[in-house]
Computed example of a mutant assay.
Amino acid sequence: MANEFPQTLTIAGTDSGGGAGVMADLKTMQERNVFATAVIVAVTAQNTLGVQDFMALPQKLIDEQFASLAADLKIRACKTGMLADAAHVHGVVENLKKYQFGPLTVDPVMIAKGGAALLADDAVATVREELVPLADVLTPNLPEAERLTGQKITTAADMERAAVALQDLGAKNIIIKGGHEATPDKASDFVLLDDGRSFWLTAPRYDTVRTHGTGDTLSSCITAELAKGKDFESAIRLGKDYVTAAIANPIAVGHGHGPLNHWAYNQGGAE
């Protein structure tokens, strides 16, 4: 029977260097044994050294991608990544309201690993007011959580308060990624679930520049697990394990912030 196999959707921008964006999403979803589809919002000229240029696609073409998928496939979970600017965030939100694509994971991508802005400043409010309230899972890093909440985050208690503030904006399950904190030996993420439970996920911090696409990979893994019917806590925990294995077992690609090893978890690289 058609459409019995778990299907996922990433709504994001491309990465010509293959390490982040839609490319990382598709690789991760494939490794997690779901069929991955994509709505391309923007195209970047990008490598491990940075983002050289990008262009958002016309909204009409984005709308047609959504309609095409809805007409034929059965998407069981979806995620967003790079959405470029306020108009495109709004357009994506309108499509997410129109179609039933399962639980939504929002990765509020704002800045690339090399420092390039991937979301216009005037779009942060649109993400906060229109997209975040739709999120079944929200996966900001520390700078993104600060922009969305307006709060400075420097301590563990700050992360916990920020997670509550993000739930107050409408997101259900929150994972604030601690990869940007200055702790030398560990990376700790704070998780606040919709039912009020909370916990920390901690992994060793590896001395490596091969971390390009970590946020995309985490959110994609969570999306894949949700499409297979996992509960939110299990999906988040597996996402953390998957990313940790991908960082701990690096591959040598590029001269800058290299990509993750998306094969590592399934090849016994799990820590």
Rank of each mutant, 00 (worst) to 15 (best):
I176W: 02
S198M: 09
A182E: 14
H88C: 04
L169I: 02
L96R: 03
V164Y: 02
N95M: 11
R210K: 15
A135P: 01
P204V: 11
H212E: 01
H88Q: 09
K172P: 01
A84D: 08
K98T: 15
S188W: 08
A116T: 14
H180N: 13
A117G: 09
G213T: 06
A165D: 03
Y206D: 07
L96Y: 04
G170F: 03
H180R: 12
A125H: 11
G215R: 05
N173M: 04
F101V: 07
E146I: 06
T105D: 02
A162D: 00
G179K: 12
D189H: 07
A86N: 01
G150M: 09
N173I: 01
W200G: 12
A156H: 14
F190K: 06
V124L: 10
M159Q: 08
P103V: 11
R205V: 09
P133I: 01
R161F: 00
V92L: 02
N95H: 10
H212R: 07
V132C: 02
L166Y: 01
A145T: 08
A86S: 08
A116Q: 15
V132D: 02
L142I: 15
E129W: 00
K98C: 05
P108Q: 10
V106Y: 03
E181V: 13
P133E: 00
A112K: 10
E181H: 15
P103H: 11
T214Y: 04
G114M: 11
K98E: 11
Q100H: 14
D158F: 06
G114I: 10
A171Q: 05
A117R: 15
A162E: 03
G150C: 13
I153E: 06
D85W: 01
A120L: 12
V89M: 01
G170T: 04
V89R: 00
D194Q: 15
A120R: 13
N95Y: 06
K152T: 15
I174K: 02
L138T: 02
R205A: 06
N173W: 00
Y206R: 14
L134P: 02
P184Q: 09
T217Y: 01
V109W: 08
P133A: 02
T105A: 14
A135D: 04
R147E: 11
D207S: 14
T155F: 04
R161E: 06
R197N: 14
L201D: 05
T211M: 04
Q167E: 00
D122C: 05
A123Q: 00
T183W: 13
L193N: 03
L148M: 10
E146W: 08
R161K: 14
I174T: 03
L134D: 02
T149W: 12
K172Y: 04
